[in-house]
Amino acid sequence: MTTGSFAWRGATIPFHPGESVASALMRAGVLQLGQDGAGCRLRYFCGIGACQSCLVSVGGTIVEACLTPAGDDLNIKAVEDEDG
């Protein structure tokens, strides 16, 4: 039973209440999160907020997708799509 959804690079990603952005993206088959500022690939890796490779931009701030709860009103973008 999904209760919400957010936009990700033009796609609509459904999520369960309380689930992380990372797991919602993963269930939707999104394995690629784009590049970071150093040109390295971003993707889900460790699941405990340590590796800094599942980064996404939420409301303009870069956060770990695995630690961040998904929400309807979140402005979630790939790091490389965020201006600046």
Binding site: S23, Y44, F45, I48
Partner: peptide
Amino acid sequence: WQLDGVMTSGGLQMLLKETGGVPPG
């Protein structure tokens, strides 16, 4: 090891626990 789609086994296990499902593929 840095490629998309590569993750840790523990990281995968946490996804399984959290979602009760498995990522596609």
